[in-house]
């Protein structure tokens, strides 16, 4: 387990390093990073301060080291859009809202995908299997940003059941969470179905039945516990999709999270904030992947004891 964790930690560091290189490179691709990192109307002393912060008069490798140092200390500079506000602070103020939405969406997805996936494997080729297949196909074809607007039009504008946008009550959470979770349902369900089919066909399921274990327990304990390991390996990719989903969905529902912040920052060409968001997002994703890997060990004793 320890060796496994150390190996994963190494990969994590490598990924983070790569992210910083990409962001660093893109920020300097325009030729004159000063224009990217500074508001057009910057005064002379601001200009000097930013040049100093990022070491823009130094050779590239020194700039990178400076940049890494800044990133590690959490110094991304002030927001250009809201002068005087620290970019990282703006991000950290909103990250909780984004995580809240993402978590609820994930719960929704799991709550829906697990039963559908299990039942469509247990009753293969039955009505529920076909319905599940269609849900999966539809889920992968619906653009988040559009279905969100359609939901608003139906449930908020016409039926007036739910608030159109913003954050506050639990009602505010429903539509954005469903919109993000929808896509995950499709992918997760397919994975669980195929993993369940494989698991149900195994010898240990045969032996469990031969022991006289109830079919309910055979399916939900023996088969599902094994089948659950497979989707876990795809969680990294799913989290990446969750980020994509949360960014467009936050815009649609004006959810005051990091996604909305970064899109506004891009529109305002507020590069320090974009940079801070990207790095924070990368950290969250990488961290989530690490947590998943630990969970993976918990779920699969063969790894835990390696």
């Amino acid at each position: 387990m320890l060796r496994y964790l150390i190996k994963r930690l190494g990969q994590t560091v490598f990924t983070l390093f790569a992210v910083t290189v990409i962001v660093f490179g893109l920020g300097r691709m325009t030729g004159d990073p000063a224009t990217v990192l500074m508001p057009v109307e910057a005064r002379q002393e601001d200009r000097a301060r930013i040049m100093e912060l990022w070491g823009l008069d130094q050779p590239l490798h020194v700039q990178y080291l400076r940049y890494i140092g800044n990133v590690l200390r959490g110094e991304f500079g002030d927001s250009l859009q809201w002068p005087g506000r620290d970019a990282l602070e703006l991000v950290l103020l909103r990250i909780g809202n984004t995580l809240e939405l993402g978590l609820v969406a994930l719960l929704f997805a799991v709550a829906l995908a697990v039963p559908i996936g299990v039942f469509s494997a247990v009753y293969k080729n039955s009505a529920i299997d076909h319905v599940g297949k269609f849900i999966a196909l539809l889920g992968q074809s619906l653009p988040h940003f559009w279905i969100g607007i359609v939901f608003i039009w139906i449930f908020a504008v016409n039926l007036r059941w739910l608030p159109t946008s913003g954050r506050g009550t639990w009602q505010h959470l429903i539509m954005p969470a469903v919109v993000i979770g929808w896509f995950q349902v499709a992918a997760l369900m397919r994975l669980i179905r195929s993993a369940m089919l494989e698991s149900l066909d195994s010898e240990y399921i045969k032996l469990a039945r031969l022991k006289g274990v109830r079919e309910r327990i055979v399916i939900w304990k023996h088969a599902l516990r094994n089948a659950a390991i497979v989707p876990l390996t795809y969680f990294g990719i799913m989290i990446a999709y969750l980020v994509v989903g949360s960014i467009t969905t936050e815009v649609v529902f004006s959810w005051p999270g990091v996604g909305l912040l970064v899109v506004n920052a891009v529109t305002a060409r507020d590069f320090p904030v974009v940079q801070a968001v990207t790095i924070v997002f990368a950290f969250v994703i990488v961290l989530a992947n690490l947590v998943v890997d630990v969970l993976y060990g918990v779920f699969d004793p063969r790894i835990r004891f390696e």
Partner: peptide
């Protein structure tokens, strides 16, 4: 019925399968 068989499997008639590598559930 399957329900009646369940009370016989394991209790009155039990079975040992061929491959011990795969007949135990790896996660329990």
């Amino acid at each position: 019925s399957q329900g009646e068989m369940r009370t016989i499997r394991g209790r009155r008639i039990s079975m040992i399968l061929q491959d011990p590598q795969t007949s135990l559930n790896p996660v329990f």
